[in-house]
Amino acid sequence: MIRIRPMAESDLDLVLRIEQTCFPRAWTRAHFHAEIGSERATPVVAELDGRVAGYLCLTVLLDEAEILDLAVDPACRRSGIGAALLVWACDEAVRQGATLLRLEVRATSAPAIALYERFGFVRNGVRKAYYEQGVDALLMDKNLVEEDVNAV
């Protein structure tokens, strides 16, 4: 059973372990602490069988939302956690009045790109050599409509 709940300070050790495992240039404790304390941010964790298995940081400003960070513990991948986090992000963005959800992803991350495309995100641009070792960032958007948010 996957449970999504607000990220708490007490989650940060586990969140940082996942972050450092998943990303060469990982966010720091200060980044996550700032997200937890921000009025515009909504950071959440996904628990699988009672343990933190993934997380997502969402920010909404007016009618636009952005997924700033999303990761799933490699040991828990392919168990629906990424999909559950994306459903939550779409629902929460709509709840907060957003009509567009944006994100960026490493152009080399085929599994993540496939997941985002399955959820209706479309590619709309590239940031050349944005990530370490010259890896491009693929920019993706999803138009949010209340009736189709849970349709995936």
Rank of each mutant, 00 (worst) to 15 (best):
A89D: 12
A93S: 09
V145T: 15
T99H: 02
T99E: 11
E104Q: 04
L115P: 11
L70N: 07
A8Y: 02
D11M: 13
G37H: 00
G50Y: 03
R3K: 13
P6K: 07
D49P: 02
T59N: 09
C90S: 02
A98N: 07
E117T: 11
L12E: 01
C57I: 14
R3I: 08
L16V: 04
P74K: 15
V105R: 03
E64A: 07
T99K: 05
K142R: 15
R102S: 02
P111M: 06
C57N: 12
K128E: 15
A114P: 12
A110F: 12
P111F: 09
G50C: 01
H31V: 04
V52I: 14
E104R: 08
V149R: 07
A65S: 15
T59P: 00
L85G: 06
E92Y: 09
L144P: 02
V152I: 01
E47A: 04
W88M: 06
R77V: 13
D91G: 12
V105I: 13
L58D: 10
A75N: 12
V126A: 00
F23C: 00
M1I: 08
G120M: 14
A34G: 04
A151K: 15
L70T: 10
E132G: 07
G50W: 03
R25F: 09
V105F: 00
